[in-house]
């Protein structure tokens, strides 16, 4: 072992995600919101210009946030700050790394910049989190260098059903893989469109090699508790907090429900008196071409 300090290793990238486990990462658009999130017990904030609900309402091309706005949020809090880059937009990712964000979300919530290729994440010192609707997609993102996976949901809706579908699917596919005899893993890799070595590793360990968070449509403490019971390691909450009637209280409640997800008495207690939840949109009412789950390949 040399006495050098090695930065950007897989161990520090994946390890960072391990330290976020059991926590809530909250979307914020201003330094004030970031402070509210930190005070409520968020483990990190996601700095962005518009929360998904507004992106949905306003339409247009959605891009990386203004560096001034990200700087403002970094200056406001002591907890980690994440930010989103468009799928495939490596130059946005380079900018975010130079700003000193702690994690980059290569996110389908923004308008994709490349309809064939995701970012080559191995080239970066900063770690990346990517969304996935199934195990194959998760393994392809890990192959490109992602250090953390989140199941995709339908962000900006307050409808948790897609997050549930994708979390269950990933979990079921991992379980299935772990039950296969070794000689069937070659075809499994072909079907999953993922490298054999990674497929064999998941089959052997019975889990993803990285942390798996959930995201998209989580709006209540009960939503968070449900996703944790379904096997999520932690929770991203986007529009659900700052589009609700009482953000500070709701943020606080979702943090507690995420920790005590297996204790219904606690989840019941923190669910009281939170005021209006975000209004919400049913996923079924969104035209198929406006749905986010199909972004990413």
């Amino acid at each position: 072992m040399s006495s050098e300090m090695s930065t950007g290793t897989s161990r520090v990238k994946r390890g960072m995600a391990e330290m976020l486990k059991g926590g809530v990462i909250m979307d914020v658009v201003t330094p004030d919101q970031a402070k509210i999130a930190e005070d409520a017990g968020a483990v990190a904030v996601m700095a962005l210009e518009r929360v998904p609900a507004d992106i949905r309402a306003e339409g247009g091309v959605s891009r990386m946030s203004d560096p001034d706005m990200i700087d403002g949020i970094i200056a406001a809090v002591s907890i980690p700050v994440m930010a989103k880059a468009r799928i495939g937009h490596f130059a946005e990712a380079q900018i975010l790394q130079s700003l000193g964000v702690d994690y980059i979300d290569e996110s389908e919530v923004l308008t994709p910049a490349d309809y064939s290729h995701h970012i080559d994440k191995w080239k970066f010192t900063v770690p990346f989190v990517c969304g996935a609707t199934n195990l194959g997609e998760a393994l392809r993102r890990l192959t490109e260098g992602a250090a953390m996976i989140r199941s995709k949901g339908e962000a900006g809706t307050g409808d948790v059903s897609n997050a549930v579908t994708h979390m269950r699917r990933i979990r079921d596919e991992v379980t299935r893989l772990a039950s296969l005899p070794a000689d069937e893993l070659f075809v499994a890799a072909k079907e999953l469109q993922a490298p054999y070595d990674l497929v064999a590793e998941v089959a052997r360990t019975g889990s993803l090699p990285t942390v798996l968070f959930t995201a998209g449509g989580i709006a209540t403490p009960a939503d968070a508790a449900m996703m944790m019971q379904l096997g999520a390691d932690g929770v991203f909450v986007g529009s659900g907090i700052f589009k609700s009637g009482n953000p500070a209280e709701r943020a606080h409640a979702i943090v507690q429900a995420t920790t005590h997800f297996d204790n219904p008495d606690v989840v019941a207690k923190v669910s009281r008196g939170l005021g209006e939840a975000m209004v919400g949109i049913n996923v079924a009412d969104i035209p198929v071409h406006h749905r986010l789950e199909d972004r990413g390949w």
Binding site: T7, M16, Q97, G100
Partner: peptide
């Protein structure tokens, strides 16, 4: 030691 990009391994 700084932000995440400064996270490191060392003996």
């Amino acid at each position: 030691f700084g932000r995440q990009t400064e996270s490191f391994e060392t003996p």
